Computed example of a mutant assay.
Amino acid sequence: MNMEFLQHIEWSRVIDLGIVYGLKILGALAIFVLGKWIAKVLTRVVKKAMEHAKVEATLVSFVGNMVYILLMVVVILAALNNLGVNTTSFVAVMGAAGLAIGLALQGTLSNVGAAVLLILFRPFKVGDFVEAGGTAGVVEEINMFSTIFKTGDNKVVIVPNSSVIGGNIVNYSAKETRRIDWTFGIGYDDDLKLAKKTLEEILLADDRIHADPAPFVAVSELADSSVNFVCRAWVNTPDYWAVNFDTVEKVKLVFDEKGISIPYPQMDVHLDKEEAAA
């Protein structure tokens, strides 16, 4: 009878413990599932609010991911707390582990920090033509670790964010207009006034060149082999290279038609009479 009574008590304890911990496990699972659903809903709400405010897509994606991660950390801690796990100690252990991981991954984390700066201060956005980190191209993506460029010859260049933020950034797409500068040289024997008038006519005839500010043409230098003109004109940023190349070609063709020479570097050598006789 005593053995049966003891076995009955042990099974009662097992059942009681099973019920208690089973409820805790079910509660933890419920907290996790419900918390995950709430985290997704709140993340969508935050993203839609930012999109409604016309925030850049890169920033929307970044903030949405950060919100979701933070909410999921809270959900996991709540689920563990429901199981009876001492979350205070758990947070301390995670903090120590995070510090160790951070020291081991300083370079990687510096890229993450640089990504935050790029997204917050937005020196450029996806689609801009940018020179940064030793490369130049159209920005295709800004992620947590790198910025992806597509160069003019269709190569993909992946640059660490720390390299991008650590140097000069030149954004050629930031402004709607850009100024083109040319230097054209003519011979010393050519008609200077005719050459200047010709350059002005070429610039004024191009509809892509802005009338305000007006194109500028002036003599800039009396060089060793040529008289140099500086020409400046404002165009829409997308028209920059087309106008640049077309104008150089047009100047050469019109100068040839009007007999205006474009000299090349040359050197006159004068020999002494005695040396020439020898």
Rank of each mutant, 00 (worst) to 15 (best):
N161D: 02
G259Q: 01
N143W: 02
I148S: 01
E201D: 11
M94G: 08
T58M: 01
W234H: 01
L83E: 03
W182C: 00
V139C: 03
E221F: 03
R178V: 15
H8K: 14
I119N: 07
E131W: 05
L204W: 08
V14T: 08
N65M: 14
E274D: 15
L194F: 02
G152H: 08
Q106V: 15
F90N: 00
L109G: 05
I25L: 10
P263T: 04
F229Q: 01
V235L: 07
I169R: 00
L77C: 09
V126T: 07
S12E: 09
V230Q: 15
F184W: 12
N244Q: 14
G84D: 01
D224M: 06
G107H: 02
V116Q: 00
E275V: 15
L23I: 09
Y264K: 15
E200S: 13
G22F: 08
N228I: 07
T135M: 03
V138N: 01
L194T: 05
F90L: 11
R179G: 14
E249L: 11
N236V: 00
A242I: 10
T147F: 02
P213G: 06
G95F: 05
G95L: 11
G185M: 04
A57E: 15
L77T: 13
V75N: 02
N111P: 12
I69E: 09
G152Q: 09
N111M: 04
I142H: 03
V116H: 01
G95Q: 03
T58V: 09
G64Q: 05
L203K: 00
G102T: 10
L199W: 03
F5V: 13
I169F: 04
E141N: 13
D246I: 06
L6G: 02
V156T: 10
E200T: 15
S226F: 01
S225L: 04
I158Q: 11
A53N: 07
V138Q: 12
A205Y: 02
L23H: 03
Y188A: 03
L80D: 02
V63W: 03
I260N: 01
F5T: 14
P265F: 03
T87E: 01
P238M: 06
E275T: 14
W241E: 08
F5L: 09
T183E: 12
I262N: 07
T147N: 02
E51Y: 12
A277H: 07
P160A: 00
D181C: 07
A49K: 06
L103T: 13
A174M: 08
A30I: 11
K54G: 06
G259I: 04
T177P: 11
T58N: 06
W182F: 11
L26D: 08
N154M: 07
P238S: 00
Y68Q: 10
L34V: 11
I202L: 11
K252T: 08
F255A: 01
M267K: 11
S225V: 12
L118F: 05
T58H: 00
E56Y: 09
S89W: 13
Y240C: 06
V138W: 15
D212E: 13
Y21N: 05
K48A: 14
A211Y: 11
I158P: 12
K150G: 04
V217Y: 03
V269P: 10
A28S: 11
S220W: 10
W234T: 13
D268K: 08
A205W: 00
D191W: 09
A28C: 07
I25Y: 08
L80F: 14
S163T: 13
W11M: 15
T58D: 02
